[in-house]
Simulated assay, not measured.
Amino acid sequence: MDTSALATSFGARLPDWVAAELAGVPEVLATDEDRIRLVNRLAERNHRENTGGPFAALVVESGTGRLLSAGVNLVLASGLSSTHAEVVALSLAQTRLGAWDLGAPGGPGLELVVNWRPCVMCYGAAMWSGVRRLLLAGDGPEVEALTGFDEGPMREDWVEQFDARGIEIVRGVLRDEAVEVFRAYGERDDAVVYNARGAAAEATASRSA
């Protein structure tokens, strides 16, 4: 087999606007509200910049509030379906620390901050990353109802599954603010909803037809 045409690497990088947006952000985000307010802001700008969907995530030291990484959804910018905000933020934190296990013994307790409950893919990514806390603006049907994105077949006992693995879940911080970001995306005439297939994709296609 001629392997010369096969891809042997892949990757993604944050758009330049993210660094500009973070330039004025303090290194320490002291409260849950500070952390969620930032992810909501990044999620809003991400879709306005047309670099991805209205999603953002951070990895933060729980005890100190020190920001380790920030990620936004890069599916459109990278052409990679796996580059959801959670995966981007976790990967950048792992790269910075040089460790695949963000919960390794001797290190600080880390948390993943997201502007909504993870989709089915990011559910697994968060669970296996090593973070010990998951801070969410909210959970529920609003993302799918307002944007048309298919979040996948999440387990009804997803909170209990995290808890069983020693991962604390905190929900409902600045929830209404997060919902307004999704509403704004769903109201855009040019919003791209990148569901590969299924009922949600068909509904989106019929809505835009």
Score class of each variant (00 low, 15 high):
V88S: 00
G109W: 00
Y194C: 09
L29A: 00
L136M: 14
P153C: 06
W116N: 03
T51S: 14
E177S: 15
V39N: 04
T51F: 05
A191H: 11
L58G: 05
D2Q: 08
L68M: 09
E202V: 15
R132N: 09
L146K: 07
A205R: 15
R117S: 05
S62T: 12
R13L: 12
G166A: 08
M127G: 00
R13W: 06
L22F: 07
G124K: 04
L68R: 01
L80R: 14
V170F: 11
A7C: 08
L42N: 03
Q94M: 13
S78D: 13
S82C: 12
G124C: 05
T8M: 05
V59W: 04
L38I: 05
T8Y: 06
D150H: 14
A12T: 09
S208Y: 06
S78C: 13
F182D: 10
M121T: 12
A70R: 04
R188D: 13
S208W: 08
E142Y: 10
A5C: 01
A126F: 00
A200C: 08
V75R: 15
M154W: 02
W17T: 04
V18R: 03
V87E: 03
G124V: 01
P105T: 06
M121G: 00
A137V: 12
D2T: 08
G148N: 11
D101R: 02
L102F: 02
E49G: 04
Y123W: 09
V179L: 15
G11C: 09
V179M: 14
A20Y: 01
A191Y: 11
E142W: 09
H47S: 09
S82I: 13
D16R: 12
R155T: 04
G53E: 13
G186C: 10
T204M: 10
S78F: 11
R197K: 14
R37K: 10
R66T: 07
A209I: 08
G24D: 13
L58V: 08
T204H: 11
Q161L: 12
S69I: 08
L146C: 06
T147D: 11
G79S: 11
C119H: 03
V114W: 00
A93V: 09
E27F: 01
P141F: 04
P26R: 02
P153H: 10
R35A: 15
D32Y: 08
T83W: 01
A77R: 09
L92R: 09
I167A: 00
R45P: 01
R45V: 12
A200Y: 13
T95F: 09
W100C: 03
